[in-house]
Write a protein that binds this DNA or RNA. Structure first.
Length: 484
RNA sequence: CGGGGUGUAGCGCAGUUUGGUAGCGCACUUGGUUUGGGACCAAGGGGUCGCAGGUUCAAAUCCUGUCACCCCGACCA
């Protein structure tokens, strides 16, 4: 490892040299995406999309396990609907795409391409909900949304992106709050266990919360360059939308009441998180649970042994595939083994299986881990049992490494000078006291570019000390970071 | 949306200062030899120089405009 690595992946800019360029090299060279002819839009290529599909699967299962159903609402939203909720429209107006014509005819009412679906879903909920017996409504949709962003980056911020948005309606505040927190926990479980990305759960400040929400909670992850990435959000919408859209129900006490609502979402941005948390100078490193290819089988085929090796490799490949492993075999003859090793490492495949003449004689295969480069030989007869265990180890190790990185790059301070210095030099998460006023929040952002990522749940019981900026009594311990 | 940068073959670049037949490396195609960490030889194919105007006998090169992408800031998932 070390020097040698860099020679092997000459197409990828080292992270230390230019992190942004490294990220772009990786997503392009690993064929996760390509730029599309529309500004700010990208094509998610098959390899990237396969990753997204695996992610969808893991999350969709969790969403359904918690009682939600999938549905699909329209892409277009009438202007009048979007404008019903004042905060909401104010939040999204600058970044919506407008549809003004149908064919050659000008529309009597402009349509927006959904930036999120609260309004159109509320419109429907107001028709569907009459009685407390209709509650809760627990619906999720997987779809695309469009936000006309000024600056875009592949996966992290694109004009159009894919996501899931859950929208629920409840009888009262308690149920809505429980739902909001429950789904945040679903996200945490999914992101930490399937994506091996550790996160901090907490509440967003007033300034950072969703446009139109009562409260917003988030999971925040730390990228390997020390910048934070909001990985998922869950909103308690209160009764704001219900009042505007007239979503009422007759309760068991005979009173007409407004429903309490929630919404929650994660996006293809999570792919960016995977890349920036796990990737290294060799390229991608994908967690086994969601990797499109979990293991790549590479037969080593010198001429005299080609036939024997290939036939054995095909046999092993079939058995492993049958066992449920997402495995591919690279038996292309026009590339050398070394070339293939580098190629598949760049694409982040968690496990490489080498099978050559020497292995054949010994009745074994060589397994090489992407996460730590360790090599071991395993008897062919043991592969089916052993590989799933090894993949699990890789998954765990990737999470542990990321967790350790996050902990090592989380600093606590009550000294603003030190705060500024850390933010300038090391970045990472900074835990500090905050008085709760937006002036201090803004001032810190102005002076250090760091924002309050969230007010972490796990620090709620601790003494917040003094506000990092004004020195008054602290109200909360919060996490500051520069963010994507 | 402000400041800076880059657009020449699929990718990375040279050529632009000083206008004169569009080049190099990798990749690609064919044939052959190779194969345990990016193999080698030989012969090939591929570009209206981002786009649109203009100046000129002549434009990748000079002028104007425009678009896209990248970096640094203000807004967001």
């Amino acid at each position: 490892m070390g020097k040698q690595d860099k020679e092997f992946v000459k197409e990828i800019t080292p992270r230390s040299q230019d992190y942004s360029q490294w990220y772009l090299d990786v997503v392009l060279k690993a064929q996760m995406m390509d730029y599309a002819p529309v500004k700010g839009c990208m094509v998610i290529r098959p390899y990237g999309y396969a990753l997204w599909e695996n992610m969808q699967q893991g999350l969709d299962r969790r969403i359904k396990d918690t009682g939600h159903q999938n549905a699909y609402f329209p892409l277009f939203i009438p202007e009048s609907l979007l404008q019903k909720e004042a905060d909401h429209v104010e939040g999204f107006a600058p970044e919506v795409a407008w549809v003004t014509h149908g064919g050659n005819e000008k529309l009597t009412e402009r349509l927006v391409v959904r930036p999120t679906s609260e309004t159109i879903i509320c419109e429907m909920y107001s028709r569907w909900i009459q009685s407390y017996r209709d509650l809760p409504v627990l619906i999720n949709q997987w779809c695309n949304v469009v936000r006309w962003e000024k600056v875009t980056r592949p996966f992290l911020r694109t004009t159009e992106f894919l996501w899931q948005e859950g929208h629920t309606a409840h009888r009262n505040e308690e149920e809505a709050e429980e739902e909001t927190r429950k789904m945040l926990e679903v996200y945490r479980d999914f992101v930490e266990n399937d994506l091996a990305v550790p996160v901090i759960c907490g509440q967003k400040t007033e300034k950072e919360k969703f446009a139109g929400a009562l409260r917003t909670y988030s999971i925040e992850a730390l990228m390997s360059d020390g910048k934070a990435l909001q990985a998922g959000t869950s909103h308690n919408l209160g009764t704001h939308f219900a009042k505007v859209f007239d979503i009422t129900y007759l309760d068991s006490d005979g009173e007409l009441k407004y429903v309490w609502q929630t919404s929650w979402g994660v996006t293809t941005r999570l792919i960016g998180a995977i890349i920036m948390v796990h990737g290294d100078d060799r390229g991608l490193m994908l967690p086994p649970k969601v990797a499109p290819i979990q293991a790549i089988l590479i037969p080593i085929t010198p001429k005299k042994a080609r036939k024997q090796v290939l036939s054995k490799a095909a046999e092993i490949f079939a058995v492993l595939k049958e066992s449920g492993l997402r495995i591919e075999m690279d038996d292309r003859e026009e590339y050398s083994p070394g070339w293939k090793f580098n190629e598949w490492e760049m694409k982040g495949v968690p496990l490489r299986i080498e099978l050559g003449p020497r292995d054949l004689e010994a009745g074994q295969a060589v397994l090489v881990r992407r996460d730590n480069g360790e090599k071991e030989t395993v008897a062919l007869s043991e592969l089916t049992q052993y590989i799933p265990v090894l993949l699990e180890k890789i998954q765990t190790n990737m999470y542990q490494k990321a967790k350790q990185f996050m902990e090592e790059n989380t600093h606590r301070t009550d000294d603003y000078q030190e705060f500024k210095q850390i933010m300038e030099e090391k970045r990472g998460f900074l835990v500090a006291g905050w008085c709760g006023c937006v002036e201090c929040e803004n001032a810190v952002k102005e002076e250090t570019k760091a924002t309050i990522r969230n007010i972490p749940f796990h620090l709620q019981q601790e003494d917040p000390g003094r506000c990092i900026y004004c020195g008054q009594d602290g109200k909360h311990l919060v996490i500051f970071a520069r963010a994507y």
